[in-house]
Amino acid sequence: MSAHKMHVDSYERNWMIFSAVLLVVFATAVSVAAFGMGIQVPAPEQRVDPRTVATDPNSPWSNPGLREIAPGKYDAYILARAVPLWEYLPKELTVPAGSSVTFYVTSPDVQHGFKIQDTNANFMVLPGQVSKLTVKFDKAGTYNFICTEFCGAGHGIMYGAITVTP
């Protein structure tokens, strides 16, 4: 048996080189958005006990809602739940335009999703974990946030809204 060299047609070799370059370009564009513009995916924030997260008085999710931590900067603690009904607590938030809101979302029961329309906030909500992302609301209007993961019979009615006032 002799060792054989791999035969690659010149057109095909050029196509493979081009494909590799193209993928490198896409990866670069993604990296610029992630590390240059701060468009990032969620990172591990905190572990919680889903059995007590909604009731323990020390848990921010026992009193979910908006907290202003600095002028124009808010923390929003949101509970996504399927029991007894499919809903977010709170269901409605209001902030002035120009606000930067950091969302902390968790679930006391099954998996949920959390997607704020027309923003980059779109993530999974898992019992036992806290999902965190920040959105800056520059334009006034109503932004629905909807559940994007199957969470039982009422998945399709689970939503809330953020009102951004001018």
């Binding site: 995916v41 591990p44 924030e45 999974m124 898992l126 974990q129 806290v130 999902s131």
Partner: peptide
């Protein structure tokens, strides 16, 4: 990508 418990 959008799971809370996996490092970026």
């Amino acid at each position: 990508y959008v799971d809370p418990g996996v490092p970026p």
